[in-house]
């Protein structure tokens, strides 16, 4: 029975590394990584909701209905909400 030796394993490792490098080069030629766009789009949506529109929704996941009365995030972002032109009150 033939087992894979250390040298063969190193060769496979080098090939995999080379393939991943090649993939990175091909992505850079075609443009922006989709993963980066998705990650940044999530940051955009989440941040905009927190600062511009939350009325207790996020904390209600933990604190329930009380969060809509406490309005912690609303109060924390209140001044920026007005200053940046978001509707408030």
């Amino acid at each position: 029975m033939n087992f894979i030796g250390i040298q063969e394993l190193k060769y496979i490792q080098r090939m995999l590394f080379f393939m991943s490098e090649s993939k990175q080069i091909s992505v850079s030629k075609t443009g922006v990584s989709k993963l980066a766009i998705i990650a940044l789009a999530i940051v955009f949506a989440a941040g905009l909701f927190v600062v511009g529109f939350d009325q207790g929704h996020i904390f209600s996941i933990v604190y329930g209905e009380q969060a809509f009365t406490d309005l912690y995030i609303h109060e924390l972002t209140h001044d920026m909400r007005h200053a940046a032109g978001f509707p408030c009150h």
Binding site: L40, V43, F44, G47, V51, T77, D79, M80
Partner: peptide
């Protein structure tokens, strides 16, 4: 106190777009 923190959050968000 939230003005500056909210600025960083909003900036990160709009900066992402």
């Amino acid at each position: 106190s939230g003005q500056i923190l909210a600025g960083v959050i909003l900036g990160t968000s709009v900066g992402a777009l």
